[in-house]
Design a protein around this nucleic acid. Structure first.
Lengths: 220, 220
DNA sequence: CGCGTGTTTGATAGCAATCAAGTTCTGTGG
DNA sequence: CCACAGAACTTGATTGCTATCAAACACGCG
């Protein structure tokens, strides 16, 4: 699979941002697990000692209300580490956006292999990034307009992508649930951004930023 | 100061939820610092090795947009630990809501004194709680109505309080910026909840829950 | 007691949700 | 390779919630 090979090289690029020893250990001590589209990776009350890294595919974390309203907390792509949020009592789950392969390891095992302080530094870094991202997300949900939300989202996706042509692993509903909007509003804003020649969607799940400055301006 | 003494005893109650050694060490190795109302506790690019615990008073973390729109990420009260989010590049700050006393310690010092793995467990716990709270906040901002937001907020405050009569350390503007609403909407919802005999505000910054079941229902 | 800040209340406007069709995409089977 | 069915997405009309603008009120501090 050429696709898989490309993704592994993306991992390696991202790995440079992490303490090298630990991502190495993750692939050494981690177990590879495959998940189908929409399959649950973890739910309530599961063992909290596990840590995950995306090898290929994509993951979303979601929180639900009793009447079905849904909020997506984050999307994780190849190379991303997640699972820190698993405390004693978390009422949300992680699901595969599409067919996905993960590396799963016990924190304890990594701590023994790499040393507690290396693990501590690694976790602290991952956590700080996560909390930082969350703060951005809070600002987006609480204070941005629909247009700013969609612009911010496309920029975020573009910045995380390696190619000019950005592939989205999620559909409009997932975008809407991430941005706190309806699917219709997301669609309208995307259309608007295209009409303004700021982005171009050759396909529903693929876009190119044609005017980055304008997109940044619109994302505030 | 009788007031200060009451707060210290609240700390002790909360301390039971944390690994005892570490909150103990925090008070042993931490330095007490006082902050005036609205004073900045940390801002961009400061040393990230510090960890904080509120002794008395209250703290908010905020993120700003260039045009002045503001989002409050969290409120911290006596006993709460914060500062995990301080990575290399955080673009938000923490400020004292009112006159506040904090314990400040270096994580490194705590790690040396208590052992890396004890620190790791402590940080992991604090982080998991923090991320969990953030997920709730994301759901609130992205998917709840104004009424649900205010109801959720009052419940959260009531649950964290020790007395029947709950004291709010913040004004309406801070509530609004926490909930992603305007000050006027917060005010209207509070009035509405009072009219429905669900809560009662003897003062602007003090309330009692008179119908908890109804409040829970409204918070979804 | 009076001033200023913070809060409530009222009237109106506007953005995004909802309801309702259409249209395009995607994958499947002939 | 094309035709088709279902899903996903777009577009349109309308409603409704919350923001905005404006003014009155009340609380807290000197």
């Amino acid at each position: 699979m050429t696709n898989a090979e490309i993704r592994i090289s993306q991992d390696q690029v991202r790995a440079l941002r992490e303490p090298v020893e630990l991502t190495g250990l993750l692939s050494q001590f981690g177990v590879k697990m495959a998940f189908a589209r929409d399959e649950e990776i973890y739910a309530q009350e599961e063992e909290a000692d596990l840590i995950y890294q995306v090898v290929s595919g994509a993951v979303r974390t979601t929180r639900l209300m009793s009447d079905g309203r849904r909020q997506i907390g984050a999307f994780y792509r190849a190379g991303d580490v997640f699972g820190m949020e698993k405390g004693e009592e978390h009422r949300f789950s992680a699901e595969a956006l599409c067919d996905t392969v993960l590396l799963v390891a016990k924190k304890k095992a990594l701590g023994l292999a790499a040393g507690q302080d290396a693990l501590e530094r690694f976790m602290a870094q991952a956590t700080a990034r996560e909390l930082d991202r969350m703060q951005d997300h809070l600002l987006l949900l609480g204070r941005k307009t629909a247009c700013e939300k969609v612009a911010s989202f496309l920029l975020e996706m573009a910045d995380r992508a390696t190619k000019q042509k950005v592939d989205l692993p999620m559909g409009r509903q997932d975008m809407a649930d991430y941005l706190g909007l309806t699917i219709e509003t997301v669609s309208r804003m995307v259309t608007q951004l295209q009409t303004a020649s700021i982005v171009e969607f050759p396909a529903n799940r693929q876009f190119v930023v044609t005017n980055r400055a304008a997109l940044e301006r619109l994302s505030e």
